[in-house]
């Protein structure tokens, strides 16, 4: 029934908006703190909002502030940003597989809004991802990020400490909320997530590589190992061990 109804662009946009609400909530305390820290690092409100508008990548924006405070050069800051954000390439490639029939120009535009959070929501969504959905999802995430960066700078204070800390769990809770439904129906998903978590923990705790690289490496290791296992299982199916 619903599958046969061609959904129009605006209803897809609305679905994206709804799916983005938890990102909007999750960005609120982080963006607010970013604005505050940007102020104490000497950035003007225009520069702060501009950075959130143009870069739109939480971790690297935070890192750039601490590098500015250390007096690090512009080139090194840009290089670090590149390294921290290289993981989005992998996310883009994954989303591209899920969004086959959209116009290229739409994808080129909405790819600007790929973050860990928008990616996670879109990639765990059932079925294909449409441009309308992506634009909806990204608008709410982007607005929250940009507006609350500005407000954080403006009011120059963060939330009461207990609320600030408890809201810090928001994005992780969202990731868990996206992951668990698939874990319940697929053992493969459980293995993928556990391996990803274990590899990333080993790489991060032992300081083996920068965080941006650790996530990419852990993701790739887990995805490739599980895929190899899958291929072998399919190849030897019928020999006696499977099913």
């Amino acid at each position: 029934m619903a599958d046969l109804v061609l959904e129009n662009h605006s209803s897809q946009f609305r679905k994206g908006l709804q799916a983005g609400v938890s990102i909007g909530i999750g960005y609120f305390p982080i963006a607010l703190t970013f604005g505050l820290l940007a102020k104490t690092s000497g950035l003007s409100i225009t520069e702060t909002v501009l950075m959130s508008m143009i870069v739109f990548a939480g971790a690297s924006q935070y890192i750039s502030l601490s590098l500015i405070a250390y007096g690090t050069g512009v080139f090194e800051i840009i290089l670090t940003t590149f390294i921290v954000n290289i993981r989005h390439f992998l996310m883009g490639a994954t989303l591209n597989e899920k969004s086959d029939h959209d116009q290229l120009i739409h994808k080129i535009i909405y790819s600007f809004g790929i973050t860990d959070e928008t990616f996670s929501v879109a990639a765990t969504k059932e079925g294909q991802v449409t441009s309308g959905y992506m634009f909806g999802l990204i608008s709410i995430a982007y607005s929250s990020w940009v507006v609350f960066s500005g407000i954080g700078h403006l009011i120059g204070a963060s939330l009461p400490q207990t609320l600030q800390e408890s809201m810090g769990v928001a994005l992780y809770a969202m990731f868990i909320g996206l992951l668990v439904p698939s874990m319940k129906t697929s053992v493969k998903v459980v293995f993928l997530a556990v391996l990803g978590a274990v590899f990333n923990t080993i790489l991060t705790i032992n300081d083996i590589m920068a965080q941006g690289w650790a996530i990419v490496t852990a993701t790739l290791l887990s995805s490739i190992i599980i895929e190899i296992v899958e291929v072998f299982k399919t190849r030897y199916r019928g020999v006696g061990h499977e099913e």
């Binding site: 597989e97 290229l104 860990d116 996670s120 997530a193 650790a214 790739l220 995805s223």
Partner: peptide, 30 residues
């Protein structure tokens, strides 16, 4: 990736790996 892989059919193994990426990433992000 959208520019490079537009309309290209990736090898099945690579497609499989990319299908795994969301769940592996979530594990690593959490």
């Amino acid at each position: 990736p959208f520019l490079l892989f537009q309309g290209k059919e990736l090898p099945p193994f690579l497609q499989g790996v990319l299908k795994n990426v969301p769940y592996a990433t979530l594990g690593a992000l959490i």
